[in-house]
């Protein structure tokens, strides 16, 4: 009897105490949607890196003779699998470059906003007092301007380059992370392990970096995956409005915007990049969603 009791107790303990992020990841990995998302995402990353050279066609080469070629299956041929645009450039190659740019901007900006936002939020939550008040009011103010409005204003008025785009996205996106990090920190700083570290004599910086950060950041980072998708959409929107990365570099937004003029007779010009973008976003969102659900389930289960 005692043996049985001991075994149930220890499994419960293991469940509660496996490092949170590892448990989250393995739980997420067990779901179909995570795997689907994972394979889509990494397939597309490989394609966007290797694809353009594999296809053997230049994404920027003009060819008036080959303009408006439809994709294979709609009357096109295999030289341009997914057709060409109004200048005869290969759409698939252009879209893949667009995907690469979108990924770079999406990932870089999310990493940036994660670092900046979490740092500010953690400090605010840990220190408290007027510093917290000040930081959180700034956060609220920044949050009260929707991302897109801020991006349009800044980029519309200055000259958009990849670096300014990333900076603007970070500027617009950090407050959400600051908020989350602060609210997690508020509950975390009351936990016993933080008290224990204080009693040992650890300095505040040490407690923040060595003790608390490894505990609270991974779950926030997991959900940040979803933001990569959001930022990729915003990058496309900026390109569409004409304030993203400037031509001739292909981006999803600019290709889609070009295609609007030819919607009636060359529907594939907007459809190809749009579909590719949608599929990659699906991949990222399925992964991020599975991670988010795994996290919620775990947090519910523990409390």
């Amino acid at each position: 009897m005692t043996g049985e009791l001991a075994s149930t107790a220890s499994t419960a303990e293991v469940r509660a105490q496996r490092s949170l992020s590892a448990t989250m990841f393995t739980n997420a990995w067990k779901t179909t949607e995570f795997r689907i998302g994972f394979f889509i995402f990494f397939g597309l990353i490989v394609l966007s890196i290797a694809g353009p050279s594999l296809l053997g066609v230049s994404p920027t080469k003009f060819s008036v003779a080959q303009k408006f070629m439809p994709p294979v299956g709609f009357g096109g041929d295999w030289s341009h699998i997914l057709g060409t645009d109004q200048m005869g450039r290969d759409l698939f190659a252009r879209s893949l470059i667009g995907l690469r740019n979108a990924l770079i901007i999406g990932v870089t900006s999310v990493v940036g906003m994660f670092v900046v936002g979490s740092a500010i939020g953690m400090i605010a939550g840990y220190v408290g007092g007027w510093i917290e008040l000040l930081l959180m009011r700034i956060t609220d103010a920044q949050m009260a301007i929707p991302v897109i409005i801020l991006a349009i204003t800044i980029l519309g008025l200055s000259r958009p380059t990849p670096v300014t785009i990333i900076c603007v996205l970070i500027l617009a996106g950090w407050p959400a992370y600051a908020r989350t990090a602060r609210s997690v920190m508020l509950s975390e700083r009351r936990k016993e392990y933080v008290r224990a570290a204080k009693i040992l004599g650890a300095s505040n910086i040490r407690i923040l970096l060595v003790h608390i950060a490894p505990n609270i950041l991974p779950p926030i980072a997991f959900v940040a995956v979803l933001d990569v998708a959001r930022m990729m959409i915003i990058e496309a929107i900026l390109g569409f409005i004409g304030i993203g990365i400037q031509p001739p570099t292909p981006t999803f937004g600019t290709i889609i915007a070009d295609g609007t003029k030819y919607l009636m007779n060359a529907w594939w010009i907007t459809t190809v990049p749009g579909l590719l973008l949608t599929i990659s976003l699906c991949g990222i969102n399925l992964m991020g969603g599975a991670l988010e659900r795994a996290r919620n389930k775990l947090l519910q289960g523990v409390s």
Binding site: Q17, S19, K191, A196, I199, P214, N215
Partner: peptide, 14 residues
């Protein structure tokens, strides 16, 4: 030194 109550939360899991 102080010893706390909760054996699970008082030591870091990582």
């Amino acid at each position: 030194q102080l010893l706390l109550q909760d054996p699970y939360n008082s030591i870091p899991s990582h």
